[in-house]
């Protein structure tokens, strides 16, 4: 299997502070890969290197390489906007625009000049909302404000918005940590469905969530990749003592 994403010897610095230390990992296509580890271990930083989201932070520096479909995304002449279209992102706090539900999903299509005709746009918006398992709940109120939706619905709207521009990879940074258990379960089931069409990388504080949704799990510790492997192996018989201590809650 050719990996969708391949990081090779990746280190990352905030000024003089090394946040990631020589990370090498291969992320398979059309599966869910979870990054787990305690706060400050580097998992979110690493996630953001995968669509160069860290570029916008001043004083940061990347060493090593990140390849997507075997092409270096830090190479010369890479169009970062096009990269982020291919590698969509959903954040911890749902961040709908103060616009209608429809316009939120249509936004990315319009700014990327992908809107097409009016029926094409409407069709794309509907398809995205369906993929995000939100369509049935909002189809009669598409032109109402997105801010009137519940937290769980807002998060699924953000997923629909990310899917609208047809990315290949979806990065999710704690997508359910602000949601109640029922809304969380909906997001988790959605992730499970979406992997048929997308490569998904999810950062989560919640180990049980990683166990439930992911196929592969990477455990980060102090900026290093402590262990990476199949999720069932990591949670039933990890190779490293450190991982064992973390997944069994014997830490500290």
């Amino acid at each position: 299997m050719i990996p969708k994403i391949r990081a090779h010897g990746l280190s990352f610095y905030y000024g003089a502070v090394r946040a990631l230390d020589d990370i090498s990992v291969e992320i398979p296509p059309n599966l869910v890969t979870a990054f787990i580890g305690p706060s400050g271990c580097g998992k979110s930083t690493f996630l953001r290197t995968l669509n160069r989201m860290n570029d916008i932070i001043a004083g940061t520096r990347v060493e090593g390489r990140v390849l997507i479909d075997e092409a270096d995304i830090y190479g010369p002449g890479v169009d970062v906007v096009a990269l982020r279209r291919r590698v969509g992102m959903v954040f911890q706090k749902s961040n709908p625009f103060p616009k209608s539900i429809f316009d939120n999903v249509a936004y990315g299509l319009r700014v990327n000049d992908m809107a097409g005709s009016r029926p094409e746009l409407a069709g794309r918006v509907e398809a995205s909302l369906r993929q995000a398992a939100l369509w049935d709940e909002v189809k009669d109120r598409l032109h109402e404000s997105a801010l009137a939706l519940s937290g769980g619905q807002q998060q699924r709207l953000c997923i629909a918005r990310a899917l609208a521009v047809r990315p290949e990879i979806l990065l999710m940074d704690e997508p359910a940590s602000a949601l109640d258990p029922i809304a969380t379960q909906r997001i988790e089931e959605l992730v499970y469905e979406l992997k048929k069409s997308y490569t998904i990388v999810i950062v989560t504080h919640n180990m049980q969530q990683a166990a439930r949704v992911s196929d592969y799990t990477a455990f980060f510790w102090l900026g290093r990749l402590a262990e990476y492997g199949r999720t069932d192996k990591i949670f039933t018989n990890p190779a490293e003592k450190l991982t064992e201590d973390y997944v069994t809650g014997r830490f500290g």
């Binding site: 049980q208 166990a211 439930r212 069932d232 039933t236």
Partner: peptide, 9 residues
């Protein structure tokens, strides 16, 4: 069964 217990609590 073990996998279901471990991964789905």
């Amino acid at each position: 069964s073990v996998r279901l217990l471990a991964l789905h609590q």
